[in-house]
Design a protein around this nucleic acid. Structure first.
Lengths: 177, 177
DNA sequence: CTCGGTTTTGCACTCAGTTGCAAAAGGTGC
DNA sequence: GCACCTTTTGCAACTGAGTGCAAAACCGAG
């Protein structure tokens, strides 16, 4: 139930076509909820059918650009969702399973993979830091909306830092740092 | 592709029936890869068909307990998987989307939900700490297998601590801590 | 204007995870 | 032994996400 609300949010920030949404997802919302263009088009169709968004006028046709905007019902649905209650989704971390498997059958070949993951996390961390420097020069003094957006980014930064530190620790445990 | 390997690992630690596996998942592997009994039975069937595990002798019958053990091919497959390369799965964090939605339509009702999440994370953290105190009195001096198992738990502890701290920070941002 | 490449939209299929439910065996009280 | 409850196994249908691919419109070169 998250993708439709992510799309509503993005459309409220700026009415867009499916392809624009896809591009914007790739550089912001997608960090915490990736989506392909196929998913997005499907969801736009459902949202339109549910009368939460509407396409700006023009003859509907395949291959023809369609710009969407959020209707009042959509805004209301989003507001409800913000206040709704939903449990955190279960953690699913294949790397933990692999460590556990390694504890049983031996850790042959594992260290290299851990280093690769550390590298990937480091790259993502650098990307987040860039965005932070560019878009949030003074988060503390900003209005609530901006402070919330910064909090999201801060979560990403914190997570990546955590994984990098943890991976380094495990590599130490394997005598391979 | 993770569940079958999780099951192989669990069966190597101790041959079990489907129901036993389900129970063991609930208190250990399931923290990082939850699975229902239906999933587990389905996967046991596939693993048996692939000749990676076998049921201990006895007439196969529905409703009748079947104990499984890992075959050499299964152990080999697991070893390969430990050394395999697999990208971290994309992050999917609905709470981040809700913050972002809140930045657009207002944060009405959000703080309560954040407190609830903080509470849930605190409970899980406490559970992890209990396990740590009970099962890992001296992780540093233990053999590699045990150190790896402790690293898994340490990841869980670190994650929960991180979320608790971050949620507290956001609540502060909302002027609601 | 028409041909070919690009953009934009969208369908169809697969796969993993979730939920609901039922069938077969085993155990317990009468 | 039989009536009933519990344990254990398993099927079936659904949902959300991922992948491949194609159709319609658009656009620039000649």
């Amino acid at each position: 139930m998250s993708l439709p609300h992510a799309i509503l949010t993005a459309l409220l920030e700026k009415p867009s076509s499916g392809l624009e949404l896809t591009r914007r997802f790739d550089k912001s919302i997608g960090f915490f909820w990736p989506a392909t263009h196929q998913q997005i088009y499907r969801e736009l169709g459902r949202l339109e059918e549910a009368a939460l968004i509407r396409a700006l006028p023009g003859p509907p046709a395949r291959g023809r650009r369609r710009e969407y905007e959020v209707l009042d019902a959509g805004r209301a649905a989003l507001r409800d969702w913000v206040a709704a209650s939903e449990d955190p989704r279960p953690v699913r971390e294949p790397l933990m399973l692999r460590l556990r498997a390694a504890a049983v059958v031996g850790s042959e070949g594992l260290a290299e993979e851990l280093r690769r993951h550390r590298q990937l996390h480091a790259e993502r961390l650098a990307a987040y830091r860039d965005i932070e420097a560019r878009d949030f020069p003074d988060p503390a003094g900003a209005p609530e909306g901006v402070r919330l957006q910064h909090a999201i980014l801060a979560a990403g930064i914190g997570m990546e830092e955590f994984w990098i530190g943890w991976l380094t620790g495990v590599l130490g445990t394997l005598g391979e740092d």
